[in-house]
Amino acid sequence: MSTSEWPLWEVFVRSRRGLSHTHAGSLHAPDAEMALRNARDLYTRRNEGVSIWVVPSAAVTASSPDERDPFFAPSADKPYRHPTFYEIPEGVRHL
């Protein structure tokens, strides 16, 4: 009987040139070469992509949900990072 479940891979697909790769889902494959092929078969059956990345799921380091607040909250109080923070006199263009 089988002892070996194939590892899990995360799949990122670039839907067309000029766009970045976005996460499409995951799949199982014995190795990277097969993961690419399986991803092509599974996630681009309807012309959804022009390029694929596969990454072993185990290699992804994620921010911990417990740190959600301390990790991301600080960026919420820096509105000066957004262009809408600044008032520009009416009629001034190309800014």
Partner: peptide
């Protein structure tokens, strides 16, 4: 033999 191969063979 495995679901991924269902998709590949059908393709």
């Amino acid at each position: 033999p495995v679901l991924e191969e269902e998709v590949a063979l059908a393709n």
